[in-house]
Deep mutational scan, measured.
Amino acid sequence: TEYKLVVVGAGGVGKSALTIQLIQNHFVDEYDPTIEDSYRKQVVIDGETCLLDILDTAGQEEYSAMRDQYMRTGEGFLCVFAINNTKSFEDIHQYREQIKRVKDSDDVPMVLVGNKCDLAARTVESRQAQDLARSYGIPYIETSAKTRQGVEDAFYTLVREIRQH
């Protein structure tokens, strides 16, 4: 089974770092803004072998026109913010609204991801993020692309959301 996953969120929150940590098991430290990259990885989730087709997208506003296209083809979405960047957390709402509009559905598989949880300088409390996820009816997972904490959990949870859909 193949799953088309799309990673969305503001610029600099760590979308590529999360994806590369999942696929290649290493942490990319330097920031190089993405336009669009796709990665494929075969994994076993709950005993089922599946192929993850992951689209890593641009957070930069100037590429926002490309969003409709990949939102149409994606089956599930990782909505990523950084726990030390309140603005990126506030941006999640717009991504969710755009996904709902493009998919013409209120019920699209999504996982809210709070990345950079290895950093002490948190400005978005776990509780705020949990409340937001609960209001959307989606899971919330904290990750660190640096330490790998929660990385597999985030992507695998999204696959489970798609399966249950």
Rank of each mutant, 00 (worst) to 15 (best):
T1C: 11
T1N: 13
T1V: 06
E2N: 02
E2R: 06
Y3W: 08
Y3K: 08
K4R: 12
K4D: 05
L5I: 10
L5Q: 01
L5H: 02
V6M: 05
V8Q: 02
V8N: 02
V8L: 08
G9C: 02
A10M: 04
G11K: 15
G11C: 12
G12N: 14
G12V: 10
G12C: 11
V13I: 09
V13K: 02
V13H: 09
V13E: 06
V13S: 12
V13P: 07
G14R: 02
G14S: 00
K15L: 02
K15C: 07
S16Q: 05
A17V: 07
A17R: 02
L18A: 09
L18D: 01
L18M: 13
L18G: 03
L18H: 02
T19C: 07
T19A: 13
Q21L: 06
L22P: 04
L22G: 10
L22Q: 14
L22D: 04
Q24N: 11
Q24I: 15
Q24P: 03
H26S: 13
F27N: 01
V28I: 12
D29M: 05
E30P: 07
E30S: 06
E30L: 08
P33I: 04
T34D: 04
T34Q: 03
T34P: 03
I35F: 06
I35Y: 11
I35K: 07
I35D: 02
E36Y: 10
D37M: 01
S38L: 15
Y39W: 07
R40P: 02
R40Q: 05
Q42K: 04
V43R: 11
D46C: 06
D46K: 09
G47Q: 11
E48T: 08
E48I: 10
C50H: 08
L51Q: 13
L52K: 03
L52H: 07
I54T: 08
D56L: 00
D56H: 00
T57P: 02
A58T: 12
A58M: 06
A58N: 13
G59M: 05
G59T: 02
Q60N: 15
E61G: 10
E61T: 13
E62N: 15
Y63A: 06
Y63Q: 11
S64A: 10
M66D: 10
M66V: 08
D68C: 05
Y70T: 03
M71W: 09
M71K: 07
M71A: 01
M71R: 07
R72T: 04
R72D: 06
T73E: 15
G74R: 05
G74Y: 03
G74Q: 05
G76N: 00
F77M: 02
V80I: 10
V80A: 05
V80M: 15
V80P: 01
F81D: 01
F81L: 13
F81E: 01
A82E: 15
I83S: 14
N84L: 07
N84S: 13
N85G: 08
N85M: 03
T86C: 11
T86N: 08
T86P: 14
K87H: 05
E90A: 10
E90R: 09
H93C: 12
H93S: 14
Y95M: 15
Y95V: 15
E97K: 08
E97W: 03
I99T: 07
K100H: 09
R101A: 05
R101Q: 02
D104T: 12
D104W: 07
S105T: 12
S105M: 12
S105L: 08
S105Y: 11
D107V: 09
D107G: 10
P109Y: 05
M110F: 14
V111Y: 01
V111G: 00
V111C: 04
L112Y: 05
G114R: 00
N115H: 13
N115T: 14
N115I: 01
K116S: 15
K116G: 15
C117L: 08
D118M: 00
L119Q: 14
L119W: 06
L119I: 14
A120K: 14
A120M: 10
R122I: 09
R122N: 09
T123E: 14
V124R: 08
V124T: 11
E125Y: 05
E125P: 12
S126H: 14
R127L: 08
R127P: 12
Q128R: 08
A129Q: 04
A129P: 05
A129T: 03
A129Y: 08
Q130H: 07
Q130D: 10
Q130F: 14
D131T: 03
L132A: 10
A133T: 03
A133N: 00
S135N: 09
G137H: 00
G137T: 06
G137D: 08
I138S: 04
I138L: 09
P139V: 06
P139G: 08
P139W: 01
Y140K: 00
I141T: 04
I141V: 15
I141C: 06
E142F: 01
E142S: 03
T143M: 10
T143C: 14
S144Q: 15
S144H: 10
S144A: 08
A145Y: 00
K146S: 14
T147S: 09
T147Q: 10
R148A: 02
Q149S: 11
Q149W: 07
Q149L: 11
G150F: 07
V151S: 09
E152K: 07
E152D: 08
E152P: 12
D153I: 11
A154W: 00
Y156R: 14
Y156T: 13
Y156I: 14
T157C: 10
V159W: 11
V159Q: 02
R160N: 11
R160I: 02
E161R: 12
I162C: 11
I162P: 00
I162H: 07
H165Y: 11
H165C: 14
